[in-house]
Simulated scan of single mutants.
Amino acid sequence: MTATNPVLTGGCQCGAVRFALSAVPSKISICHCRMCQKASGAPFASFADIPNEHFAWTRGKPAAFRSSSIAERDFCAACGTPLSFRRIGGPKIEIMTGAFDRPDRVIPTLQYGTESRLGWVGTIVNLPSKTTLQMYGPEKLGEIVNHQHPDHD
Rank of each mutant, 00 (worst) to 15 (best):
F85Y: 15
A64L: 13
G60D: 14
A39H: 06
E53T: 02
Y112D: 01
K140M: 08
T97H: 03
A99K: 07
C79N: 13
S67N: 10
S129Y: 07
P150H: 01
G80T: 04
R18F: 10
W57E: 12
A39F: 02
F47G: 02
G98W: 12
R102D: 11
E139F: 08
G113S: 03
A20C: 10
R34W: 07
F100R: 02
G60H: 12
H149P: 11
R117L: 02
C14K: 11
V106S: 06
C36K: 00
N126M: 06
I144K: 12
C76L: 13
P62I: 09
D101L: 04
I88H: 07
I30R: 02
M96A: 14
Q111A: 08
Q13F: 05
W57Y: 15
G122P: 02
G10L: 05
A78T: 08
K61H: 15
I93C: 13
C36S: 02
A77L: 01
G80A: 13
I50E: 09
T109G: 06
P51E: 04
F19P: 03
H149R: 14
I95V: 14
Y112V: 02
Q111M: 03
E94T: 08
I70H: 06
S69I: 05
G98F: 08
F19T: 03
S22R: 03
V125S: 12
V145N: 14
G89S: 04
K140F: 10
C31Y: 01
G60N: 07
K140Q: 15
N5E: 10
S68E: 14
M1D: 04
I30Q: 04
P138Y: 02
N5S: 13
R18Y: 09
P103E: 08
G80N: 11
T2Y: 08
R102M: 15
D101F: 05
F44S: 02
L110E: 07
A63R: 14
S69G: 13
S22I: 04
T123L: 06
R59H: 12
P51N: 11
M135P: 05
P62Y: 12
C79P: 12
G119P: 02
S67M: 11
C31Q: 00
R18Q: 14
P6I: 00
T132M: 10
K61I: 04
C33F: 01
I93D: 07
R59I: 10
P138I: 09
E72F: 01
E53W: 00
E72I: 09
R73C: 08
S40W: 00
R73D: 15
D49F: 00
V17P: 08
R59W: 14
S129E: 09
N5I: 05
S67T: 09
I93A: 10
L141N: 04
G113K: 01
A63Q: 15
N5G: 06
V17M: 11
